[in-house]
Simulated scan of single mutants.
Amino acid sequence: MIQDHEAFPGTPGTLPFGARLSEAMDAHGPLCVGIDPHPGLLRAWGLADSPAGLRDFTLRTTEALAGRVAAVKPQSAFFERHGSAGIAVLEEALAALRDGGTLSILDVKRGDIGSTMAGYAQAYLGDGPLAADAVTLAPYLGYGALAPALELAESNQRGVFVLALTSNPEGAAVQHARDPQGLPVARSIAEAAGISNAPARAAGILGSVGLVVGATIGSAVADLGIDLRASGGALLAPGVGAQGAGARELERVFGAARRQVLASTSRAVLGAGPGIEDLRAAAASAAAEAHSALR
């Protein structure tokens, strides 16, 4: 995917997030594995629903996956529910992924305005203990309100994934609605991401502003007239594999943009635990499945 590293400005010796993700997808397959330690999964692994159980689950998972998949996506909510002790485990997980050379996408879905958005950006895209390689963002206070996060991500060679077309049924009420210019909201978000990614596209690399597009949304992309390929960034696609989307569904949703897709799964991999080798085998199988379906 990457054509010209040197053509893109940035910190010497450091590639933008989109370029690093592209390399990781080429090396390990187009798969992102979620870390979703909900109570039922902790119980299935024989662990207590406590900070200690959460830590065991999380560090075992990062040990199994680091260096073996393109990206890992911790779901912040399942750590936050344990309070400060859970946040401490999340910080450990992000550090373990960083040390293991694996990209982290922190699923926080933050979206706010002004100094509050700047605060979230500093927490997750700055240099603190909760900093990830990329975060998920909710643009429904306006794409422009995300500017503090977009600007800090760019300056720190990090990335974002902006919610565009989610697979939950309630999402259509907002995402399919028309903005003041008459465009579907999801289309306006995709087009805004394309503008943000224009410099990367000109340099022939994957943009660092990705979109979240559910793999099980059927014909919504076509129905709303969205050109996902023109968005220029990675397309984080929940719903692949155990959640229902195979090659046929991916073709229907993503079409010519399939090479930009980073398939996201958690259940198909985490359900194989708690053994580390079992987790690795499940991740390798899921990565091969995603590669076959998308490439």
Rank of each mutant, 00 (worst) to 15 (best):
E154I: 02
A268Q: 12
D278A: 02
L146Q: 14
Y143E: 15
A245W: 02
A27S: 15
A118P: 06
T102Q: 06
P39V: 04
Q260C: 12
A70M: 13
L125G: 11
R295I: 04
A164C: 15
R60I: 00
D133A: 08
E91Q: 14
G271I: 00
A123Q: 07
A272G: 01
A193I: 13
A48P: 00
A131I: 03
G46K: 06
T62V: 10
R280I: 05
S167M: 09
I205N: 11
H38F: 05
E80V: 03
V160R: 11
D223L: 05
S167D: 08
G246D: 15
P169N: 04
L42G: 00
G144S: 13
A215Y: 02
E91F: 02
I226E: 14
K73M: 12
A283F: 10
S264A: 11
A242W: 06
A272E: 02
P184L: 11
F8V: 08
G210K: 02
A164H: 06
V261N: 09
P184Q: 13
Y120N: 14
R55S: 10
A203P: 07
A96M: 07
D278K: 01
P184F: 14
T14I: 13
R55I: 01
A263Q: 10
P180A: 03
R81Q: 11
S76K: 10
L65D: 09
P274Y: 00
V72K: 03
V240E: 04
G225C: 01
S22A: 15
P129I: 06
L183H: 14
K73R: 06
S219T: 10
G53T: 02
A134V: 12
A52I: 00
P180M: 01
V160Y: 08
A164Y: 08
E191Q: 15
A287H: 07
V69D: 07
L211W: 04
F254E: 04
G275S: 12
V209F: 05
A282F: 07
A268D: 10
L165S: 01
E154M: 04
N156I: 00
P180S: 04
R43Q: 01
A19Y: 14
V269H: 08
D227H: 11
T11I: 14
P184E: 15
A173Y: 06
A234N: 07
G144W: 11
E91V: 04
A66R: 12
A71I: 03
R267A: 05
G244D: 07
S22N: 11
L42R: 00
A149Q: 09
S264I: 03
L206M: 15
G210M: 07
L141N: 05
A202F: 00
A85L: 01
G159S: 07
V174R: 11
A198Q: 10
A257W: 01
A245R: 04
P30N: 06
A123R: 06
R201K: 12
G159N: 07
S208R: 11
P180T: 02
A286F: 13
S264M: 04
H28K: 15
A134N: 10
G142H: 13
E191W: 09
E91M: 03
D4C: 10
L150W: 07
R295W: 09
G46E: 09
P12D: 09
V209N: 05
A147M: 09
R98G: 10
H38R: 07
S104N: 08
T216W: 12
S50W: 03
S50P: 05
V174N: 09
P129F: 04
